[in-house]
Design a protein around this nucleic acid. Sequence first.
DNA 1: TAGATTGTCTAGCAGTGCTAGAATTCAGGA
DNA 2: TCCTGAATTCTAGCACTGCTAGACAATCTA
Lengths: 190, 190
Amino acid sequence: MPTQSRRERARAERHELILRTARELAESIGWGAVTTRRLAEAIDYSQPVLYGHFENMNAIADAVAIQGIEELIAVLRFARTSAPDPADGLHALAKAYLEYASNHPAVYEAIFVRPTDLEFASADSPLLLKTAFAEFQAAIEPFAAGDDPETLTEVLWSALHGQATLAHASRLRPEHSRARADLLVKVITS
Amino acid sequence: MPTQSRRERARAERHELILRTARELAESIGWGAVTTRRLAEAIDYSQPVLYGHFENMNAIADAVAIQGIEELIAVLRFARTSAPDPADGLHALAKAYLEYASNHPAVYEAIFVRPTDLEFASADSPLLLKTAFAEFQAAIEPFAAGDDPETLTEVLWSALHGQATLAHASRLRPEHSRARADLLVKVITS
DNA sequence: TAGATTGTCTAGCAGTGCTAGAATTCAGGA
DNA sequence: TCCTGAATTCTAGCACTGCTAGACAATCTA
């Protein structure tokens, strides 16, 4: 049945088109302005088509978030494992995290800021979140000393998340971004 | 002119009623569900009345945010200055901040999370934000050692903000809230 | 080619923020 | 006490939102 598979292929392509377009739109005009009508217009179909692929608008943002967290995990892992020693590894991981958030603010928002119940309800995403968390923990474990590694991981992740979101909201001095990351790593490792 | 002042008094009272009701609604059903119709219904007036007091719905949330940051400043100052020494002061400030965020999540969201341009555009609020920032800086300055105090303040505030928001989004283990605050203060002061 | 299935669109619902203009209330003067 | 003008409040409506039912068109099967 080549027909059936051709159809399925076309359908899968459109699925990706929706996600790619939603992501581009969000990065350029913000999630608040990504409406079903605008998104449908951008992919050159009518709105109901979107609902043939996703349950609702939120599910589209959730799917973008899942793509994003997969990217983020790869970025963190590469940064950490490419470093010559644990201290550099933690440093590289922190910088990579903040850079990803800064370079893909809409995706970061979809993953960690936008209200969504998918992250904990679905079958795949909790595993992804755990994997991302494990990257943080692997990077910081060498510096845990007598402290609970998991708690220290939460402290590190929260601190980076805070820097990412406040910087994006223009509430931190933009030219001191690197200094903040450096200082955070310093106080944690010393 | 007792008539004029009576009118003005009634108007000021309704102004406060709007703010109080918006805050209560937001805390109980979330900002997303605080609509002009619902808010107008709650204060027993029609929607256009709201626009006689505030420019738009966002301005109402902004006004709640300003009330909130004034409260928060008082809370932080009390926590810091009531402590017997700087270390306890920093500890108390951190806990007070996280407690406020946890006890008034909608107000905290209005201040630090909701998209708003008021915080930096208006005449009053930047001063309030600076005052709040000064509280953090006063608490952490004794521990700055050779580091830039302002950068360290940003690191501290970001770390607490991250813990507050991720905890509210149920992304951190709720029973370890205190341990995270303790550990953060520990790594910063040691 | 006829019929069934699949895919897509048009048109519409209830909700949103916000506003113009009608209706009402009220204060002050004759 | 009644009238007039001003201040206040409401009704009704706009353009937008997410989402969907049902009509229509294209495609595959027999």
